[in-house]
Design a protein around this nucleic acid. Structure first.
Lengths: 282, 282
DNA sequence: CGCGGCGATACCGCGCGGGTATCGTTCCAG
DNA sequence: CTGGAACGATACCCGCGCGGTATCGCCGCG
């Protein structure tokens, strides 16, 4: 199976429409039809059920969609990591670290400082991305190592080391009655009249339905809270970044947040090993 | 990057010799040379250092070798799992479970029986293979799920659930002086005069150097111990299989052995989920 | 019933993958 | 010092596969 065939199949499986898939791939429709037929013949498996009105995935087709995406990610990762290894000075391949935009910068900067002080440290690029994207970025080679946050991120398929665990706090506008309390419970926070929890974008950029305002990043979020339009439950390490007008109150029954350092299991370069060693010692 | 290019590069990187690599690939040497050149040009990376006497990997080349193997495994996995999904009756894709040949069959048969009794259970094929091969088999799609044994097997890159932990025992020929003891320590067992620990084959089929006899499987091993030519430290679940002439003595400081059920993190078919649920409940 | 949308088929050209022959370099034997 | 052997690169040729355009066959709908 060639990667081109995989890309073609995935395009069709996602669009469920040969014409649109061909357009997305930048080729004409007939070669695409033939490529899929050839792929089906070679695999000995019917991947798509087509009538002249609709295209649907078969059982085998949905298996190939899932497995094929993972395979393409792995191929892309090989490509990207090889290019990066070639760009860097010999013996000094740079590392790319990915973390959630807006997550605590304090742990990260401590890590980067400590690692930079190590003998033989290499340049570390930091890549910030939205929630849920990090796993993808780590899998397809855009990054070599990441800081993930359990239980929000999935660490399926990565090697990890736990770095630290922290409790969560409710962030409220100053002067709100609940700020008088020493601690809260989730039930106190989830249904505050006039102070809904915000809605974060899903992976495809759309927002779930609900009462809260749509937010894209933490700056937006904190501003909305200051304005008395929302509230949020965040890891306690956000405290130093809360400016005037924001108060944090511990939420006793919010799940603890664990920060882990994660990396693809087969990539064991010296530089990466060094960074991980420093992180664990922090 | 096409999978053919990857296969070609990996062959050369492993043989470090264009002629032999071409032979292995079943093509002539000149097209192989050209393919590698084109790959290097497209990646913008020098992968191999060649003189007319020797071929060596560059830094970027060894990155591509490592990442490329993982990528090819993922592509092969997509291929194999799609074929299997197509063969099975619709809605009932069979599962392939891999475990170490000679490992305890008792847990496995309990698992298979319990799962077969579930509503909606699908056929489960069992694949036995040598130590260390299971991870590969699980990664390249020959199996969907496996029983691995920590700390011997690596679970890097898989999702796992622990099934049970057991202590280890020394297996000795009946009548050996140590069989009088209620328990032993590793130091007692490792340096027994005339009773060396056996040598298992490595992944490439060769054996490490040492005094012990070469063994390929557990039948061989137990026979050698019965004959008074070797000893071994095994999980205590081996006890029911020890026939006449073999005695097991607990080894207090041997590392405990944990049996885990492991599966590739992105494969979440209904059938697999059912098997895992049954395993965890056992 | 005719039109439009969609996937399949027919046919064509060219570029790429693969083959054979040969070259250039380097090491080594005599 | 020199000729041969080993090895990767280059030159050149062929055929197939990939991609393109034109068109067909099927089906739902106005």
């Amino acid at each position: 199976m060639e990667t081109r065939e995989l890309r073609y199949f995935i395009a069709v499986a996602e669009e469920l429409h040969f014409g649109r898939a061909a357009e997305r791939l930048g080729i004409a429709q007939p070669p695409l039809s033939r490529a899929i037929q050839r792929l089906e013949r070679r695999l000995g498996a019917k991947l798509l059920e087509r009538t002249s009105r609709a295209v649907t995935l078969t059982e085998a087709g949905s298996v190939l969609l899932r497995e094929g995406r993972a395979a393409l990610d792995a191929v892309d990762a090989a490509d990207r990591r090889t290019r990066r290894a070639a760009l860097a000075a010999p013996g000094h391949p740079g590392l790319v670290l990915v973390t959630k935009a807006g997550a605590t910068t304090e742990l990260l900067s401590k890590l980067l400082d400590a690692y930079a002080a190590e003998p033989g440290a290499v340049a570390v690029d930091v890549l910030l991305c939205g929630p849920g994207e990090q796993e993808r970025v780590l899998r397809d080679g855009r990054a070599d190592v990441g800081l993930l946050h359990l239980p929000f991120d999935s660490i399926a398929g990565f090697d990890t080391e736990e770095l630290r665990t922290e409790t969560q706090v409710a962030v409220l506008p100053a002067g709100h009655p609940l700020t008088e309390r020493a601690h809260l419970r989730m039930a106190d926070v989830t249904a505050l009249p006039g102070l809904p929890l915000p809605r974060w974008p899903r992976l495809d950029g759309t927002y779930p339905d609900g009462p809260g305002p749509e937010v894209r990043d933490h700056v937006q979020l904190l501003q909305l809270i200051t304005l008395g339009r929302a509230t949020a439950v965040l890891p306690e390490s956000c405290r130093p970044h809360l400016g005037e007008g924001l108060v944090a109150v511990p939420v006793l029954d919010a799940p603890p947040v664990t920060t882990v350092i994660a990396w693809p299991p087969h990539s064991r370069s010296l530089a990466l090993a060094g960074l991980i060693r420093v992180a664990v010692r922090l």
